[in-house]
C-alpha cells in the first residue's frame, strides 16, 4: 500500500518526534515498527556493551591512563546499585599529587558514547589547558558520576572532570556528558557540580564542549567552587562564553 501524498512532510521538519507514521489498522506499519525496534536495540547495546578501554588507552597515547573499577562487579549490579557505582573497588591504586585537575573517563550508561566522543573531547580540552598540572587520565568501569569524587579525593586533585556515557535515548545512543566538581570528596551533592550534556554528532560538538568546559574549569579555579553559584554566573554572562541553560545545567544524574 502506498500513500500518494504525505500531509506530514510540512510538519516533520519541526520535530524529531515520530509523527505521521501511518497506520496498519490501528497498529504501526511494519517499517515504523522495525525503525522503533532498531533504535531500541542500539540504545540497549549502548547500555550493555563494555567500553574497550585498551583501545581507548592506545587512542589517547602518549597520555598516561590508569584503569580503575567501581564496587559494582558487573552491569546487572551496576544498574541496580548506583551506590556501588559511586565507590572505588578496594584494589584501586591511584597516585597522589599536587594536581589542578583530574580527567576521568567513565563508561556510565553508554559504551558507544565513550568510544565515539571521549578521546576527541579530551584532546580538544587538553589543547585549551596549557600550564595546568593534570593528573594521569583515569579510565573507570561500572562508574557513576560520583565515582569522580572518590578518585579526585584519593589523588588530591582540586577539580575532577568526569566524561561519562549518558543514558541512551531512542534518537541518540552515544551522547556524552561532562561533570565538573571543585574539591571532589566522597559525599559531594549533585548541586555542587556543573554539567555539560548532549555531546554527540547532532548535539554539542567536541570543540564547543571543550570551549565551554575549559571556561567553566577556569572559573571554578578562580572562584574556588562549582555548582549552583557557578551556574548562575554562567547564565548571567552575555553570549560567547555563556552556555545555554539546557546545556550548562546542574548535575541531575
Amino acid at each position: 500500500m502506498s500513500v500518494p501524498l504525505d500531509p506530514w512532510s510540512r510538519l516533520r521538519h519541526a520535530t524529531r518526534a515520530r509523527i505521521g507514521l501511518g497506520r496498519s489498522g490501528d497498529a504501526l506499519p511494519t517499517e515504523a515498527l522495525l525503525d522503533f525496534q532498531q533504535a531500541h536495540a542500539l540504545a540497549r547495546d549502548a547500555v550493555h556493551s563494555a567500553v574497550d578501554f585498551p583501545a581507548l588507552t592506545a587512542d589517547l597515547a602518549p597520555l598516561t591512563c590508569l584503569h580503575v573499577a567501581s564496587q559494582a562487579a558487573d552491569r546487572s549490579i551496576y544498574l541496580r546499585r548506583p551506590d556501588l557505582g559511586r565507590r572505588l573497588a578496594a584494589d584501586a591504586d591511584l597516585p597522589r599529587g599536587d594536581w589542578d585537575a583530574v580527567f576521568v573517563i567513565a563508561d556510565g550508561l553508554s559504551a558507544s558514547a565513550v568510544m565515539d566522543q571521549a578521546a576527541p573531547t579530551l584532546r580538544a580540552c587538553l589543547a585549551r589547558l596549557p600550564g595546568w598540572k593534570l593528573a594521569p587520565v583515569v579510565l573507570a568501569s561500572q562508574a557513576r558520576v560520583a565515582l569522580g569524587d572518590d578518585i579526585g579525593e584519593r589523588m588530591g586533585a582540586r577539580l575532577s572532570v568526569v566524561l561519562i556515557g549518558e543514558r541512551p535515548g531512542l534518537s541518540v545512543a552515544n551522547s556524552l556528558g561532562i561533570y565538573l566538581t571543585w574539591e571532589p570528596r566522597v559525599g559531594r551533592k549533585d548541586s555542587e557540580r556543573n554539567c555539560l550534556s548532549n555531546i554527540h554528532a547532532d548535539g554539542l560538538s567536541h570543540e564547543v564542549a571543550a570551549e565551554k568546559l575549559t571556561w567553566l574549569m577556569t572559573e571554578a579555579v578562580r572562584r574556588r567552587l562549582t555548582g549552583v553559584a557557578l551556574k548562575e554566573n554562567a547564565d548571567a554572562l552575555p553570549t560567547a562564553s555563556r552556555d545555554d541553560r539546557v546545556i550548562v545545567g546542574l548535575c541531575d544524574e
Partner: peptide, 10 residues
Amino acid sequence: LPGADDVMLN
C-alpha cells in the same frame, strides 16, 4: 505520544 518515543525526556 507519537510513536511511543518521548524525544524530550528520553
